[in-house]
Nucleic acid binder design. Structure first.
Ligand SMILES: [Mn+2]
Ligand SMILES: [Mn+2]
Ligand SMILES: [Zn+2]
Ligand SMILES: [Zn+2]
Lengths: 154, 154
DNA sequence: CTCTTATTGATAATGATTTCCATTCTTAAT
DNA sequence: ATTAAGAATGGAAATCATTATCAATAAGAG
């Protein structure tokens, strides 16, 4: 019995095909879960959510798909220090916009932070430009996290 | 046969005692390795280096000690995406000064980057101040990494 | 519809980090 | 210097997230 499938082509189908990947039910389910969540989900959390709709999908496929998505740049893979990778849809058609993270070292809460100051963005670009000159390092991305205590934990 | 021990009190002894920890040969060896290295060492790499002088020290002790040191703030624990934690002496009496990292996504080389622009430091402080007001998040530390291609890999 | 082969899921394997626990060593008090 | 209390250690076993295998299945081009 083939899985129930959404007929309508999704925003990512083109990009997926372009890379030579096939559109499959597990992949649709995983992207569906990711696009409907505001959290930073682990592979197992995604597995559990997908599992409620498609019990047939295995954890292995979750890992495999996440790997593909991360390599394609559709999702970001993070390490927040809880010994498991966490994933989040990257910026794009359906993704939230670029942001940084505040991490509470006490309760491990992750807070998205996107209200950058203009200067903040400007300086970041300036810095990347500087890195190119000083180290001849061509930066394509950056990771910025602040560690400290959240409102509740102070 | 007790291990050979350096009699002279080291810079970190006081801080160590203050936390109620004992000064032991394995701990001295580990801090010695860390302070003599410019790299971002993994637990096993440290184990191997320590092992050449003190074959009796076990890998378990390396992990335990690194955990203590990280909690005390004497070292930083990093994840550079190669599925093992990497450690580096933090700033301080014998540590190098605060810096950020450039990570080559092709050859995995890690480059320390410390020549900040004045504005860069100023803005960072400003940002942390802003986070306190907007999110009531008291930042005590930050992690900044740039991903891209190093000189050789472009 | 048919065929090629990418994809999948169950299971086993991996590998870094932890847990256990009996033994050893550090250190404060004699 | 001796002693005693318990912190620290190391080797082996256990965890646990992530990968590798491989036979079975299903996507999609023709
Ligand atoms: Mn986020
Ligand atoms: Mn460094
Ligand atoms: Zn908190
Ligand atoms: Zn490189």
């Amino acid at each position: 019995m083939p899985m129930q499938r959404n007929i309508r082509p999704m925003w990512w189908h083109g990009r997926f095909r372009g890379c030579g990947y096939r559109i499959t039910a597990p992949r649709e389910a995983i992207l569906d879960v990711l696009s409907k969540s505001d959290d930073h989900l682990s592979a197992e959390e995604i597995y559990i959510k997908v599992h409620t709709y498609y019990p047939a999908v295995g954890l292995t496929t979750i890992y495999r798909t996440l790997d593909i998505l991360a390599n394609m740049g559709l999702i970001f893979k993070f390490d927040f220090g809880d010994s498991r990778a966490r994933y989040e849809l990257s910026e794009g058609p359906k993704g939230k916009k670029h942001h940084h993270h505040l991490i509470c070292t006490n309760c491990n809460r992750i807070i998205d932070y996107a209200d950058f100051i203009d200067e903040e963005i400007k300086l970041l670009e300036q810095t990347e430009k500087g890195l190119l000159k000083k180290y001849n390092f061509k930066s394509t991305n950056h990771l910025i996290q602040f560690y400290g205590l959240c409102e509740k934990c102070q």
